[in-house]
């Protein structure tokens, strides 16, 4: 079969090739996330680095452990596992004990990817599944936000908790802009939202840098622009309508967009090609669904933030969306039913 000098080369389509490969896409996304990650380290200190490292390590260990013996190196080298670990780490609070972040990364790959049959077969975004697991497992640690200390590269007290042990008596805990808005009716200034300096998950501090990464990905053609655009537009529109009813009670459109994990989720997680629809029409439906769910959970639900659940729910609807938005094959009649 493997003749070293074939006399006849047989190819099947496609005959034109692009350098658009899985490792390249994964590398692009990691590069796009670097500025926001750097900002997070500036605001939250070394604690953020430790959490990110632990979650990436957890993902890598799971990836290595559950791969077939023959392809152990390959599954790590395509970078998708590492990206899952990084994305998960960015959604975690900076003061989270490292062992929890490790467990989260491990669970992300196990439950989010391996049991479905590996990359490309999973129904849910692995990083968000890992976060949902952590949120349900350690609800207190996952909603304890340390006070930000720009430029002080310290480690949060909670980071170094021993495995299976509590984070210990916490010092001062801060709050997220969404939490402040929901429970204390306090509005955080937009400039702080856009450039960081707000409490919250590691990756959601700097909205502007997340957007910058998104533009880079769009230029490199690594993401379907329809999804983030439709999510953000829906959220802004929903917000605007609510504000027209009662400006006191409901969040303004820009606040809605820049607060919480919306930008991180809309640009880097909802666009995961495996778990979002492939058709353009489907992408619009998917994005609008995420946007509506986010606003419903934030405004009318019991939780301050709903990006994670919104994306996971729409992930579940993706196969159905794909099925009903199949384009008509040229030359075929539209289905009469």
């Amino acid at each position: 079969m493997t003749d070293k000098e074939p006399r006849l080369l047989l190819f099947h389509a496609p005959l034109l090739r692009q350098d658009m490969t899985t490792p390249r896409t994964m590398r692009d996304v990691i590069v796009a996330l670097l500025p926001a990650t750097a900002a997070a380290v500036w605001y939250f200190g070394l604690g953020a680095v430790l959490v990110l490292a632990a979650s990436i390590l957890g993902a890598a260990v799971a990836e290595w452990l559950f791969a077939p013996r023959a392809s152990r190196g390959a599954s790590l080298r395509d970078g998708s596992g590492l990206l899952t670990g990084l994305l998960l780490g960015l959604t975690l609070p900076p003061g989270l004990p490292m062992w929890m972040a490790f467990l989260g990364g491990f669970v992300s790959i196990c439950l989010g990817k391996v049991i479905w049959g590996g990359l490309g077969h999973n129904l849910f975004n692995p990083a968000l599944l890992g976060r949902a697991f952590l949120l349900a497992t350690f609800p207190i640690a996952m909603t304890t936000w340390p006070v930000i200390t720009p430029g002080e590269f310290g480690v949060q007290a909670g980071n170094l908790a021993l495995p299976f042990m509590q984070a210990g008596a916490d010092g001062v805990s801060g709050a997220t802009p969404l939490g402040l808005f929901k429970f204390e009716q306090q509005v955080t200034p937009l400039a702080e939202l856009a450039f960081g300096k707000i409490g919250g998950s590691i990756g959601e501090t700097s909205g502007a840098l997340l957007l910058l990464g998104g533009v880079y990905l769009w230029i490199r053609r690594d993401l379907d622009w329809r999804i983030p655009v439709s999510i953000l537009a829906t959220v802004a529109l929903f917000s605007l309508v609510l504000v027209l009813f009662d400006a006191e009670r409901f969040p303004a459109p820009l606040f809605s967009i820049f607060s919480g994990g919306l930008l991180l989720g809309a640009i880097y997680m909802a666009t995961d090609p495996v778990t979002s629809p492939v058709t353009p029409k489907g992408a619009w439906i998917f994005g609008i669904g995420v946007g509506v769910l986010v606003m419903l959970i934030r405004v009318f639900g019991g939780l301050p933030e709903g990006v994670m659940y919104a994306i996971l729910l729409m992930n579940a609807a993706t196969p159905l969306i794909d099925r009903y938005t199949q384009p008509r094959v040229f030359g075929h009649e539209a289905e009469s039913s």
Binding site: M100, T137, Q166, A167
Partner: peptide, 12 residues
């Protein structure tokens, strides 16, 4: 089994 500082896995 593990003393007071054990962090329970609520999901379980």
């Amino acid at each position: 089994l593990f003393g007071d500082s054990f962090e329970p896995w609520v999901i379980m």
